[in-house]
Design a protein around this nucleic acid. Structure first.
Lengths: 137, 137
DNA sequence: TTGTCTGCAAACGTTTTGCACGACC
DNA sequence: GGTCGTGCAAAACGTTTGCAGACAA
């Protein structure tokens, strides 16, 4: 059940520890773009001696190796995402959910053509999601 | 010289105070996407009794009225921009400069068509800017 | 005069740091 | 045995809050 994550860590020459495995598993199973505190609170239940510092460390290590990515939406804390491909996000101001947005922008090439070297692409939207729109109010 | 900003504030029914005028003037004349601290440090030189709280308050008020906008780039503090139209940013990891990017993404309509109501659009890139590319290293 | 704005100090929440202990090659 | 990871506590950082006095309209 955890072999998948053991493999992933080993492939990236990252030492395998229970904390890293659990962090990775949590992110894989919870595609809600959780904050550090959400991850910590959840994992602490099964491992009461878990430290938040370790969560920070684990997430940073995983991110450095490109296994996961972080996202920042103004007004909210840092979040993490198991999905490591470029994609964007939509934050619903009403329900707070963050929805993945998979659009591509053909004009990104314009930046490349202007001589800059793009390493990271980040995009997000804020508004009212489909579900909340239907509910009215 | 400040009449321009007095007018802008009055048009938006915002009380005119020297602090608000100076904040607005600074943002207009410094299109570098300054942080709160940068604005504060600079304005404090001419007005030593200036408080950072006031800068926070002024910026928030101006933003609420849509006169200015804020931007967040992960790993850096909150920044403010006199330009209030939708546009994107490019942070050079080398020199730290933030460059305006004026590309449009035709596919944004896909989000609208999917039923979500978009109120805000934020996008930014990270990499190495043209100038730093030329310098080599 | 009335309500709002300013400036100070303290509080707050998130993230980082320093360090001792422990686990693993 | 030496390196690396963990967990704790404290510090750092950016931002927010509460409040008293000052100011704009």
């Amino acid at each position: 059940m955890l072999e998948k994550y053991v493999k992933l860590l080993k492939e990236n020459s990252i030492k395998v520890t229970p904390q890293r495995l659990e962090t990775l598993k949590y992110l894989d199973e919870n595609r809600t773009h959780p904050t550090v505190d959400e991850i910590y609170s959840e994992l602490k239940e099964k491992n009461p001696s878990l430290s938040k510092t370790t969560i920070y460390n684990s997430l940073e290590t995983l991110k450095e190796h490109g296994i996961i990515q972080s996202l920042t939406i103004s007004g909210t804390e840092l979040r993490y995402d198991f999905e490591n491909k470029i994609h964007h996000h939509f934050l619903c101001k009403k329900c707070g959910n963050i929805i993945d947005i998979d659009i591509e922008c053909p004009n990104i090439n314009k930046i490349l053509n202007s001589g800059h070297e793009v390493e990271e692409v980040h995009g997000y939207f804020k508004g009212k999601c489909k579900k909340c729109m239907k509910k009215g109010s």
